[in-house]
Design a protein around this nucleic acid. Sequence first.
DNA 1: ACATGAATATTGGAT
DNA 2: ATCCAATTTTCATGT
Lengths: 256, 256
Amino acid sequence: MLVDHIVSPSPEDLQAFFDSHIHRRECVLQVLAASEIMYSGRAASMAEAGEFLTIIKPDGSLQVHGAKGVKPVNWQPKTNDIFVMQEADHLVLTAERYSPNEIVRISFLEPALAQAFEIQEDHSFVLMGSEADMQKSLKANPESIEEGLIILDEELPTSVGDIDLYAQDAQGNLVVMELKRNKATQEAVHQLARYVQKIHQQMPKRDIRGFLVAPDITNPAMKELNLLGLEFKQITALPEFETNVSQPGLFEGLMA
Amino acid sequence: MLVDHIVSPSPEDLQAFFDSHIHRRECVLQVLAASEIMYSGRAASMAEAGEFLTIIKPDGSLQVHGAKGVKPVNWQPKTNDIFVMQEADHLVLTAERYSPNEIVRISFLEPALAQAFEIQEDHSFVLMGSEADMQKSLKANPESIEEGLIILDEELPTSVGDIDLYAQDAQGNLVVMELKRNKATQEAVHQLARYVQKIHQQMPKRDIRGFLVAPDITNPAMKELNLLGLEFKQITALPEFETNVSQPGLFEGLMA
DNA sequence: ACATGAATATTGGAT
DNA sequence: ATCCAATTTTCATGT
């Protein structure tokens, strides 16, 4: 719901706009303006006089968008303090965060628009098809990976990280599994190798097999996997999502 | 610059709004509405009737923002096709991408606002303090890592990835370096270990040292590093950015 | 198009 | 607060 809307605000208008909204933290604020943006903190960046859309949400997060891409040009996920100041002939917004110490300063050189609207928070968000879902599904149906597999543990902690799935095969060998919901890369291969090595150190007498469980694998990763004597177990990823979702029925099915 | 602005548009208004803008790809479009969002592709998600802000940029990227956070609730970095359709008593926007195949559908149940504005593309963006900068700086001043170090190569490719910096120490030993601009984790330790092992395989006769070069390191990572016989080389990260940037002078300094 | 790795990654969860 | 791993990661880059 639109609460406030000022076209081509003067610096004074803009100041009043922020004064009335910035600390109430109820509205999403937007300023469209030719701006100069400066960031310093984990890195440092600067954007000279271009047009940007600045968005400040009630939770204090700030993002500055340019003409392209999903990713903002500048942003701050959390801020401890946001304030505005007149400077020369324009308004400057400063957003500070203390830990890590970082600061974004936006000079609104030529504001075209300032507006505020309320966005009610939503809670009914459902995401399916994450690695966690995959893990649950595979734990329930280990035979879809290999006949005779028995799951021993999930998220088994080791000193070098947690093992996604830990199992025993039909011959009684131990199996270490690393799951990826996307195409597996060399990174994943080495993650798996690390776990297998660790378990091997702990139990030098046992045979340890390593499975990289994913819908697909890159060529270099496959090569590396073979070199290391590990195995790729292809699983059809999330078959229920492969169908075109615009079909009626699935829409409801997603929430089931 | 504000081009179009419709408060509480009817479905027909909204349709006309999209018809006039969606294919010209000149404006950033924004719709604030009680919406229902459905995504299917790499995963699947759904959000029931909440208030969301949908933003479509001229490059075809789409993002749907809720009341919190920098990250959108739903998004699509690139789209091949965006279209709208009347459905029952409301308008539905569909954004499709072919590879990977994914689709976002937004039902605008109660539109509160539809806007279009022009954002000129900006080109003068400068970021400093990336790992690339760090690498350049260290390459120029290897003695800041260790006395007598001679850099032999940068981004040296191996079958398991590229080595950030490759060098020789005062005693003639080979040195493999992995750089991190943040606190180094176990991941970084194993990345380094991988490279050292590879080089060792190639030259079994030579002594190979492995340096993890970072401003800081996590405790578990330090333990693991010691176990593997590798070394941590602390470097003060980007001293020029530690100072408070709001000081006059540095602002200009950033661009120098 | 594929593969790789950085990122001001962000975010959530576990410890 | 620290640490770790997933992410519809996104994005740039190299091949």
